[in-house]
Design a protein around this nucleic acid. Structure first.
Lengths: 130, 130
DNA sequence: TGTCGTTATATTCGATCGGACATATCGTGA
DNA sequence: TCACGATATGTCCGATCGAATATAACGACA
């Protein structure tokens, strides 16, 4: 393969870290307006999605997502301005990182073994794939 | 905390990925000339260190470390030119990433909760800390 | 007032990861 | 030729992680 992919997470102190998983969850919450729907989209259990979200909301002074129980549709979840800022900062840095990674690892990447294509369980789509 | 830390790993195809753990292992092999000593330095079991090394050596056409059994001192391990290149590429990119991360996450980092200092088991020193 | 879909949370279970431990093997030097 | 210290590799076990499942609470709306 030519362009190596870089996955990274950002550690804020020792309390909270943000990586591709939580960012993808936030993105799906933003597009679906529902935590359970985001979990289904990402192929993860609702419990795990809830734990990830709780971790994000607890890790900062400002919460990234507001949730509501009951009401129309049973409830829902929505990004706050801070949540959108988290996504924007991560994705902006991500684009920079991927672009620059090519130069640093091009030579080494040529030494990597030719890969065998691996499948992902059907029906699971990550925003980061688009 | 002000400057957020970024941890990343580089995926080469689906076969092999290089992250901070393997790089630290390579660095300690380079300075100590021994896989078992590197494992002790990093506070990991010899088994795990050997598995990580085997993974690195198997992931590329060229091996990163040569090993020897028997002989003076019982044997040893040494970086190849490719192994040194792996370290150089990773650390070079690392420096760039850390420097640029500050700008992208400065505002968000101010929203992170004040951290409680956490200790590391005594006697364990990572090259990446220096 | 009852229905509905979602958030919130506890319990249980299986898979996975890595440490601890046990050996076997090797080659130089005493 | 024997001892030594390191590599090489297997087995076992405890901790951890996350999926599966179950259940409660909630509030708008028909």
């Amino acid at each position: 393969m030519h362009a190596p992919a870089v996955r990274f997470r950002v550690d804020f102190g020792r309390d909270e870290a943000i990586g591709p998983g939580k960012i993808a969850l936030l993105e799906h919450i933003g597009t679906s307006g529902s935590l359970s729907q985001a979990a289904r989209d990402l192929g993860m259990s609702y419990r795990r999605a809830w734990q990830l979200l709780a971790s994000v909301n607890a890790g900062f002074r400002e919460r990234a997502v507001t949730t509501a129980r009951g009401g129309r549709g049973g409830g829902g979840a929505a990004l706050t301005a801070f949540g959108r800022e988290l996504i924007r900062a991560y994705r902006g840095f991500d684009a920079e990182v991927q672009e620059r990674a090519g130069r640093h690892f091009r030579a080494i990447s040529r030494q990597a073994h030719p890969q065998v294509r691996k499948r992902r369980p059907a029906g699971i789509v990550r925003l980061s794939d688009r």
